[in-house]
């Protein structure tokens, strides 16, 4: 059913860091951006930003597109969807189980309440 998978662990690991989340938020809010645009709001040097982008790239959360000498970064939604699917499997499991639990408990109670003829 719901198993750990390496790509999924990478997604969650990539999301743990606040700078990387801020980068994703920026991309989500403002759309595609160049690396220097992304680095601007942070008090860290370009190589550090590149490192964060590498982690996000390995997790498949961003794509880098090179046009001429400019690298543009854009969001890639697939891993986020996988993370959601993983949670949704649990949600599906328990939603169905609890519905049946409720029906079963109610039938038991009815059987106890109504006197046998």
């Amino acid at each position: 059913m719901a198993k750990y998978s390496t790509p999924l662990d990478q997604t969650f690991a990539a999301l743990v860091d606040p700078t990387r989340r801020a980068i994703l938020a920026r991309l989500e809010h403002d759309g595609d951006a160049t690396i220097s645009q992304l680095a601007q709001p942070f008090a860290i040097k370009l190589p550090a930003v590149m490192k964060h982008l590498d982690v996000l790239g390995q997790a498949g959360l961003i794509e880098r597109v090179k046009v001429g000498r400019t690298v543009t970064v854009r969001l890639s939604p697939a891993p986020m969807q996988e993370a959601m699917d993983w949670l949704r499997r649990y949600e599906h499991f328990w939603t169905h189980s609890l519905d049946r639990l409720a029906a079963y408990a109610e039938s038991r109670e009815n059987a106890q309440r109504s006197p046998k003829p």
């Binding site: 989340r21 994703l24 989500e28 969001l75 939604p77 969807q81 959601m84």
Partner: peptide
């Protein structure tokens, strides 16, 4: 934070 929430809402 908002980053993830937004991503979740969007995708």
């Amino acid at each position: 934070g908002g980053a993830l929430d937004k991503l979740v809402r969007r995708y």
